[in-house]
Amino acid sequence: MANSVTVQSALNQFLSTDSLDSHRRKVCSRLMDCRTARMGGMEMRCDHCKARTVHYYGCRDRHCPQCQGRASQQWCERQRRSLLPVPYFHLVFTLPHALNGWIQVHPEVVYRRLFESVWNTLSQFGHKTKHLQGELGMTAVLHTWGQNLSRHVHVHCLIPGGALTETGEWHQAKHQYLFPVRALSRRFRGRMVSSLRSSIRTGELHRLIDPGALNDVLNEVMQKDWVVYARHCLNQAETVVDYLARYTHRIAISNGRLVSQDGDWIKLRYKDYREDGRQKTLQLEGAEFIRRFLMHILPKGFMRIRHFGYLSNRTRRQKLTAIHQALQKPPEAGDVTENGAESHRTWPCPQCDGGVVHMVRQIPRYKTVGILTA
């Protein structure tokens, strides 16, 4: 008989740690402990109806489907300060699946080269396009999955529609898709292949040991068209961050897409973009579901959200001020303040109309010695 399923319950039932490295083992341990007694929490009491409830802490891991909603909201509040009153463009750069084997053994190298190649491509177009001739800004987000949890590595880029020149002028973008997609694709392909050849020469891809096979793969992908996708620009600046938030903290699979579990089989919902986004269901064995999920755990410390150009962290404040001056539109005054509700540990009572719940005690983290935490 089918029953409900979550990523957490699937990990608890089907995960085998025999072949896991220490990083994936720790990530899975956090996801399995999330919002349970093992994480600790707070005991709350309503000042009106005196009802007592217990709230367990989340793990805050970036791969956790239970914790990313709040992380996304907090990220949005910070990014609103960097918005410009200009149209925005959304571009997606995708790696060919022929490189998936390389990603399997050297993800940190290929992902880093991917970010570098995407920015090099767009930066070159920004400086050489006649009506721009300046520095672009870009926020880029790495995704490694397709809707069916297969490996599908791509980068989502959100780019303000204009360039900042060396003299401090602002040149507005004129075209609906910012740059020609075919030209971007060819430049991106050449840059990425050249970058991977450099990694081979320097020994960064040392686990790939057959030089002839590596060269054959790169020659093969150079003969194919690479996928670069561009969407219409966004004209409402206030919706830009909310739009990007759909991508920044998205994970490989959310609990909302898991339909049911029947024995050792898990059924999930996905969109088939080859059929115009038609909704379909896919049934996977529990072990296969876990295998696909583990493919998308990022290398330890790897930053999947990055800012480039005049949006880079080092020069963002100075260059955004220059852009606002060039546009003669001063930035919005005041910073977003953090919500103080959690610091006071009070919330509206979910069980009565007029009460407020207060924290009465901290519940310490419950430490266990087991397969994942030893």
Rank of each mutant, 00 (worst) to 15 (best):
G354T: 13
G161K: 01
D216S: 15
G286E: 05
L298M: 15
S123R: 12
I371V: 12
A245W: 13
S29V: 09
K130V: 06
R187W: 11
M192I: 05
E135F: 00
V141K: 03
S9Y: 10
K280G: 03
T368I: 12
L31C: 12
C352R: 03
I297M: 14
H55S: 15
L214G: 06
S117Y: 02
T167Q: 14
T368C: 12
R25E: 07
R186W: 07
L164M: 00
S343G: 03
A51M: 12
L372G: 08
I363C: 03
F93M: 06
C233W: 05
L31H: 14
R345P: 01
Q74L: 14
Q104L: 13
L298N: 13
K271T: 06
V7C: 11
I200K: 06
I159W: 05
Q66T: 08
G101Y: 14
Q176A: 11
V217R: 10
G256Y: 13
R30S: 15
R24A: 14
M39S: 10
N215G: 11
H48S: 14
A333C: 11
D21P: 10
H206C: 06
Q8V: 07
H143R: 12
K319Q: 02
W347I: 13
G286Y: 07
M39T: 13
L132R: 00
T315Q: 08
L31I: 15
H143K: 12
G146H: 02
G168Y: 01
S343F: 09
P364L: 04
P160V: 02
F14L: 08
H156C: 07
Q261H: 12
